[in-house]
Amino acid sequence: MVSKPLIVVICLDEEGVSEIINDRLYTVLARKDEVLKATSLSEARRHLTSTIRPHAVIVADDAVTYPRNREVLLRLVEYAKAGGTVVYAGTFSSSVRHQDLDSMFKDVWGLPWRAFSFATTTHTVNPRVQGLNPNGLVKRYVVDANHIDHVALEDAVYLPSSVVKKLRKGGHQSAGQTYRTPAAFATVGRGRVGYIGDVDGDDDTTRLVIAMCFWPGSRAPVPPGDGVAEVVSILMSMQGL
């Protein structure tokens, strides 16, 4: 019997509405996958260092950006670089502070992504996005979302319709040109990291989360070890120890 893929949902601060908003996604995933929640630092550490590696990790709230949970962020990057998939979804975008989001992407992930603003928009799937099959995504994405900026063309999942029309006509982007989007998906090492800014968690977004978790070629990484020494040494150097 083939075991179900393991999906870990990290939700370190379950106060407020996080449980309600994440319920739809959790229910859909649980129908076909084994879903485990990490609601404490120790649980997150265990899932990210176990020899039974998750197929994907969904970060469902902003508590991973708190200083006391810095270790989790470092382990998430380590996991992704080894071939794992990390997706920021759920209530993450609606609760994280802009400065914390910018710092996390720049200093921890090494990405130029920056927080932009909240907007209700209708976007079209980007035909040039890499790592995802555009045919498996809803073509017109109507969403209330916290957008991010400075996203490379190949990493932007959805773009304004006017931009997509130019791309389909063979339009070329200027060197270094970046885009604003409600959803992004980038390569990190041998794995991937995604961001979804939707604040409502509707069915189209649920499909997008699943597409990111199971992008073509995705698989649970094989751990080279428990990763403790590397992460702890990084933490100590950051603290000047």
Rank of each mutant, 00 (worst) to 15 (best):
L29N: 02
Q130Y: 05
I58G: 01
V59Q: 06
I20N: 03
L74I: 07
K106Y: 10
A60C: 05
I20M: 11
I58E: 01
T120C: 14
V86G: 02
L74R: 14
A119R: 15
N146F: 06
G110N: 08
T85G: 04
Y158D: 01
Q130C: 07
R53F: 04
I52D: 15
R114P: 04
A152S: 13
K106L: 14
S95V: 06
T49K: 14
R53Y: 03
G136D: 12
A115C: 08
W113N: 12
V143N: 00
T124H: 03
P112E: 12
L101T: 01
P134Y: 10
L74E: 15
R24E: 12
V86M: 02
S50T: 03
A156S: 07
N22E: 14
E71I: 10
R128S: 11
F116G: 04
S161P: 03
L74Y: 09
P127M: 10
D23W: 05
S93W: 00
S94V: 04
A63G: 03
T27F: 07
V64K: 01
T91V: 13
T122S: 14
T91H: 03
P54E: 06
S95R: 06
D62M: 01
V57L: 04
F92G: 02
E34L: 11
P134H: 08
L137Q: 10
L76F: 02
R140P: 00
R70N: 09
E78I: 05
V108K: 10
T65Y: 08
V151R: 01
S103C: 14
H98S: 15
A38P: 04
S94Y: 06
T91C: 12
H147Y: 11
A152C: 11
A115Y: 12
A38Y: 08
L29M: 11
R114K: 15
L132T: 09
A38K: 05
R53K: 10
R75E: 08
L76T: 02
R24M: 12
H147W: 11
P54H: 09
V28C: 08
T91F: 01
N126D: 09
R45Q: 13
V87Q: 04
D62Q: 09
L41I: 07
A82K: 05
L101C: 00
